[in-house]
Amino acid sequence: MGERKLDTEGCQGIKFKNVTPDMFSCMKKKLQACGIETSPGNSGMLEGNGIVASFSWDGEANLIIEIKEKSLNTYCGQVSGKFRALLRECQGF
């Protein structure tokens, strides 16, 4: 008991367009503030709060996040919704 159970099935990749460098930097800072560790640079891993995901930003406008693992009691839509909300918060930066 007490083991972290993860679901590795089927969340689709989340694609964001028109992500400026400032928005990308802001989103990474917000993720870290939520307890999600992020790899340095334009691609790598996001991990924390029961979520493991990879991310790749082309350095200009396109960001792709692929959820690799999530808690069993967390739905793909919840995770993608949180990422979308964080990016919306960063649109003014």
Rank of each mutant, 00 (worst) to 15 (best):
Lys29Gly: 12
Leu87Gly: 13
Glu60Arg: 10
Gly2Val: 06
Cys76Arg: 13
Lys17Pro: 01
Cys34Leu: 12
Gly41Val: 04
Cys34Arg: 12
Lys82Ala: 09
Glu66His: 09
Ile67Val: 11
Asp7Gln: 05
Leu72Met: 15
Glu3Gly: 10
Gln78Phe: 15
Lys15Ala: 07
Val19Glu: 02
Met1Thr: 08
Gln12Leu: 14
Ser56Glu: 09
Ile51Ser: 10
Cys26His: 02
Glu9Gly: 07
Asp58Gln: 01
Val79Pro: 00
Gly48Met: 05
Lys17Ser: 12
Ala85Gln: 14
Gly35Tyr: 03
Arg4Val: 12
Arg88Gly: 14
Phe93Ala: 13
Glu47His: 04
Leu87Trp: 05
Gly77Pro: 04
Met23Val: 10
Gln12Asp: 14
Asp22Ala: 14
Lys82Pro: 00
Thr38Ser: 09
Gly35Lys: 01
Asn18Ser: 07
Leu72Ala: 11
Gly59Leu: 01
Phe16Cys: 13
Ser80Asn: 09
Lys17Val: 06
Asn42Phe: 08
Asp7Asn: 14
Glu69Cys: 01
Ser71Ile: 00
Ser71Ala: 03
Ile67Asn: 00
Leu6Gln: 01
Leu63Val: 12
Leu31Ile: 04
Asp7Gly: 03
Lys17Asn: 12
Asn49Tyr: 06
Cys26Trp: 03
Thr20Met: 07
Lys5Leu: 13
Ile36Gln: 00
Leu87Lys: 13
Glu66Ala: 14
Leu87Tyr: 11
Glu60Asn: 06
Met1Arg: 11
Lys29Ile: 09
Gly48Leu: 05
Glu3Gln: 04
Thr74Gln: 03
Leu6Thr: 01
Asn73Val: 01
Met27Cys: 11
Met27Val: 13
Glu47Gly: 08
Thr38Arg: 02
Lys28Arg: 15
Pro40Ile: 07
Glu89Ala: 11
Leu86Met: 15
Ile14Asn: 04
Met1Gly: 08
Phe55Ile: 07
Asn42Val: 07
Arg4Glu: 10
Ser39Arg: 03
Ala53Arg: 08
Ala53Lys: 06
Ile51Lys: 07
Leu86Ile: 14
Glu3Met: 10
Leu86Gly: 10
Gly48His: 13
Phe24Asn: 05
Ser80Cys: 14
Ile36Leu: 05
Arg4Asp: 10
Ile36Cys: 02
Ser80Ala: 15
Gly92Met: 07
Gly44Ile: 04
Pro40Trp: 11
Lys28Glu: 10
Ile67Arg: 00
Phe93Val: 12
Ala33Tyr: 05
Cys76Val: 12
Arg84Glu: 15
Phe55Arg: 05
Cys76Pro: 15
Lys29Val: 10
Glu69Tyr: 01
Glu69Asp: 00
Leu87Glu: 11
Met1Trp: 05
Glu3Ile: 05
Gln12Thr: 14
Gly41Ser: 03
Ala61Tyr: 03
Lys15Gly: 00
Thr20Glu: 06
Gly10Trp: 08
Phe83Gln: 12
